[in-house]
Design a protein around this nucleic acid. Sequence first.
DNA 1: TTTTGAGTTGTTCGA
DNA 2: GTCGAACAACTCAAA
Length: 419
Amino acid sequence: MWFRRDLRLSDHPALAEACGAGAVLPLFVLDPTFADCGAPRAQMLRACLGRLNAATGGALVVRSGDPVDIVPALAATVDASTVFVTKDFAPYGRARDARVADALRAGGRRLRGVGSNYVAEPGTVLKDDGTSYSVFTPFSRRWLSHGIPAPIAPPTAVDWIEAPSDPHPIAPDSAALTAVERWDEFRRAGLADYATQRDLPAVDGTSRLSAALKFGVVHPRQLLADVDESIDGHRVFRSELAWRDFYADVLSRFPRSAWENLDQRFDRLHVDTDAAAHARFEVWCRGATGFPIVDAGMRQLAATGWMHNRVRMITASFLVKDLHLPWQWGARFFMQHLVDGDLASNNHGWQWAAGSGTDAAPFFRVFNPTAQQERWDPTGEYMHRWIPELDTSEYPAPMVDHKVERAEALARYEAIKRH
DNA sequence: TTTTGAGTTGTTCGA
DNA sequence: GTCGAACAACTCAAA
């Protein structure tokens, strides 16, 4: 069993099938491709691996290197007939798995993909004519009509195969909540009010399960099993999980949309990339724009590896529409700093803000950072929490005039219309 | 094939 | 201060 973004034993179809086939070697490969994923995600990975190792009674084998070398070699060492994986639909993962499958085949073995990290496997939510959706709302209706698969039981009494492991990454902080504990807490205290509380960055009104979902510590179908569709908050939460599936589906169909405009008309949008643009970008990264809600978000990200979703939208809108920078700069920065950084959700969220993505925001929807702060952080609690010097002379003046930059953004969008 | 209704997250302006 | 309309036009999905 080659674990990737499915670091759990319960509700794990691929593992269940592997266990049904015989003794199992649990493997994780530290792929150098992901070496620069950023400290928060690297730390989260180490914690997840520590927990997974404990759950296997210390049997987890961790190896560093290219999976194309490591997986077939290890499979040969223990004479495995099959390497089980949870299917990966992201651009790199898909190419990597194709190469590993080829290498295994050369040795008379096979790579067997079972299940995915999503409620509905990318490519399976289709219109009546068999084609894919590109608008969220109809996608989510069809997604719902598929029904939510029930979680499956964890395997019992697994016969783990032992093999030499590279030194294990650091063990987890045992004080941290497990994903299931966090879900129980959120279900009890926050889920019913999610529809109204989820947008307030000063409030702990979101599930905070994004990183657990990213690493597959918990599968979304396990969360959906507890959703009561008669309650508003529950339905809104379910809809957010549908967005996660939707963007994975879109990325799987359009791999190049990870870093390129999905809507190619936006290739012609005038964005700034000169030295002055880099200087503005650096100010945004540092959280020193002089717009408190933007700076608070960037500082929360730097300090904790996480940013409230409402503030992700505000900071993204600011980078794209007030600073006129390429959305890719912001997306890359987020990926380097977010503990939950996920290519599909992150980059398509950025494309939504930029207007270049699926179901994108209308061009005239330009967030006003001051109005957003007044609306969603009315007491200023969030911005003061992250900007201690806010009311002092140390806090910078606004780096741009929003009214002017809004007009500039609209003019630039106007220039690429009708093409 | 044609038609129709709809489309995450907003802002500004003028009555 | 409040409230509703305008802000484009297009593409998608489904009847």
